[in-house]
Simulated scan of single mutants.
Amino acid sequence: MSSTAALAQGTREISIDGVRQVFHVAGTGPVCVVHSGGPGIGWEYLRMPALEQHLTMVYLEPIGTGASGRLADPRDYRLDTYVRFVHGVVEHLGLPKVFLLGHSHGGFVAQRYALEHADRLAGLILFATSPVTGPEFWADAVANVNRFPERHPDRQEAAEIPQAFQEAAAAADDKAYTEGLRRILPAYFADYWAHEDALEPMRAVLKAWIDPMRGEEPAPFDVRDRLGSIALPSLVLTGAHDFICGTRWASMLHDGIPGSRLTLLADSGHMGHLEQPEVFTRAVAEFARA
């Protein structure tokens, strides 16, 4: 298939290793493949209409979510699997190079892809992510969640977030995982309630699937000692109030990747593309042009 046909606007579907991979094409300009966070969260929250004025965005529905296929064994939802599916889409597009944008867990996928397939990338965009997880990473996230009510003392919903976070982490099925994610969503913003009218419709339709959470990695994610080998133009973005992938982890990425750019979204949490869309769009568009 020609790259023109592969990049026709709308929803596309291909098969990779016998599993359905769905993606959505929108916008105009250089091609940017987008991998959302999770694992197991629907892609729609990451739609970036303003950026589609500058780039042709190829939004993946990660395997195990949405209309994409499911793996027979949930333990196979690992980073190397996601990387293989990203590469399948890149190969299908038929272009020498594309940009790759990864958000949160999608940023882990993007880092691994850049380390394995740098020759296929024009640039790497790491949005609200980290080069490492593990006990210290998660302890920091939990501590930030527990402090979240202090930032919004007049919001009863904020007071309930720490308990809701524990319950979401213990979800055993798709319904409980989805409901838990919707309950804790305000924690992913600097001030959810300042944008509540615009965000509530997204919250109401947000969906999540539990099986991708059951993937078994052979070792904890940690690429800090390999960041120096990434010779790609790279942009790191994070929100100053991101409870899970904030400035500490973004600085590790920026310091570790030679020549990378760092953009701090001062009034955002984990969802800077929704809280500060103009600043976010300008940073990514200028990076791509450069």
Rank of each mutant, 00 (worst) to 15 (best):
E91D: 15
L46A: 04
A118L: 09
P258D: 13
A67D: 15
E91A: 09
I63P: 02
F243M: 10
T281I: 07
E52K: 03
G215Y: 05
T281W: 07
R282T: 06
S229D: 14
Q156N: 06
V34T: 03
G88Q: 08
L71S: 09
Y113H: 08
A6P: 10
E179L: 08
E160L: 03
L181P: 02
A139D: 15
T281F: 01
H35Y: 10
P186H: 14
H241I: 12
H254Y: 13
E13D: 12
G29P: 00
A164H: 08
T281K: 02
A8D: 14
T247L: 14
W193K: 00
A288L: 01
R282Q: 13
A50V: 03
F127Q: 05
F127R: 00
A139E: 14
M271E: 00
P149M: 10
D76C: 14
I63T: 07
F287N: 07
G29S: 00
V89G: 07
Q53V: 09
V236K: 06
D255Q: 14
Q53K: 10
Q166V: 12
I63W: 07
T129I: 03
G106K: 06
G259T: 01
E157G: 14
L46W: 02
G42L: 02
W249P: 04
L199Y: 06
R289S: 15
H273G: 05
F243D: 06
Y77Q: 02
N144G: 05
Y45M: 14
